[in-house]
Design a protein around this nucleic acid. Structure first.
Lengths: 214, 214
DNA sequence: ATCATATGACTGACCGTCAGTCAAGTATGA
DNA sequence: TCATACTTGACTGACGGTCAGTCATATGAT
């Protein structure tokens, strides 16, 4: 077979991208390593030169995607010119955390037959985002819009609930069930953070594109 | 080999029990079906006579365990002589839902290397327990100790947080981290259910060994 | 410039494990 | 005695992972 050498970083990323695509399409356990290397046109050994197992690339995929997400969230969280509520609105409006790029990335994960991907993603999402959100909560405490005794632990709990129950694709809820749960979640978030009722209305606004004040 | 015929129900349960024990000890993916049948002293075909796949027995294990748990919870929830807070205390005091038997069953699941077991258990636990707890919450609303707009959805969210974050064994928290998170959880639960601060103190009481007269 | 040596990305045949199948055997009850 | 339910274990095929070896390129000495 034609032998094509690439820079390690490039090859590694190529494997990650290819694996991600196939896992998304067919699920993790339904995608043999052989499918990945066939798609890339490389030998089995190449795969195992870069990753020590099949699980290993799963973690790499999640890490890669989460890095993008964390960067974006951190950028907003660290912006000194915004108040806490604005940050929250930016991060939580619409149904997903993130802008179009990230949204796309995250949305792909919600397909079924991807339990393994979901699980790893959910856990890492909670662990990586909670400290960043906790900072915003602390800011909100100082601005007297929130009143939260345990910012980190509270955010971890809230993110876990949101991530696993709604965004994780683990529960097969219908559209209506999701709407109901999001409504309840808004109340819980407001109460848990000690915010005025209605503060997090944007979590349930139907429009995410333009501004619609109804 | 000696051929022993048993009643289907008995055999089925025997497989469930044996599989559960081995999964607990070595993890799901590290336990080949061969190990299960060897432990039982039966042939491969016997296993597949009762279960159509390896995953299948996983679900049966969870279902079996959850049935016990649900029964116990339901019994308390349906007891007309108790007020809502008493029921909550009974169900949530100590660190786990359930009495000694159930506690033992559930605790085993918290070992590492059991992701598959955890995942299925967590989801099913939330789905099956939330409607029962919701009933208690409604009772509490009527008794004016709670004030919750969406009992079912709220309980589902709270159970998800508790189950995945604390009881699921997914996050590798230290003892101290668990204590902190349980503390935060108490506040969230009280706020989410609209209960007075301190109502759920029993969630964080250290007494579980000594005898306590109510 | 030419050749020698080293590096490391890459190859693919091969192996062991393991989930799942199946044809055939044996107990049990009608 | 026949039928049905249960049991057996050899077998298959798929798949994750290994490893001895190949080859392009870089480095450096002559």
């Amino acid at each position: 077979m034609a032998r094509i050498t690439k820079k390690p970083e490039e090859r590694r990323l190529e494997i990650i991208k290819t694996a991600e695509k196939l896992f998304r399409e067919n699920g993790f356990s339904n995608t043999p390593v052989d499918a990945i290397i066939k798609e890339m046109g490389v030998a089995k050994g190449t795969y195992y030169y870069y990753f020590k197992s099949k699980e290993d690339v799963l973690e790499a995929i999640v890490e890669y995607q989460l890095d993008q997400l964390v960067q974006m969230v951190e950028q907003i969280a660290n912006d000194a010119s915004m108040d806490a509520l604005t940050k929250m609105r930016l991060l939580l409006s619409g149904s997903h955390i993130g802008d179009e790029d990230t949204k796309e990335v995250i949305e792909q994960l919600h397909l079924p037959a991807n339990r393994e991907l979901h699980e790893v993603t959910n856990i890492q999402t909670v662990l990586k985002l909670s400290p960043i959100f906790a900072k915003i909560v602390e800011q909100g405490n100082q601005e007297n819009v929130f009143n939260t005794r345990y910012p980190l632990e509270t955010m971890q709990f809230l993110l876990t609930g949101g991530q696993f129950l709604l965004d994780g694709g683990l529960f097969n809820f219908s559209e209506q069930e999701i709407i109901d749960r999001r409504l309840a979640m808004q109340e819980i978030v407001e109460k848990a953070l000690g915010a005025e009722p209605g503060t997090f209305d944007f979590m349930n606004s139907t429009v995410s594109e333009g501004d619609k004040n109804d």
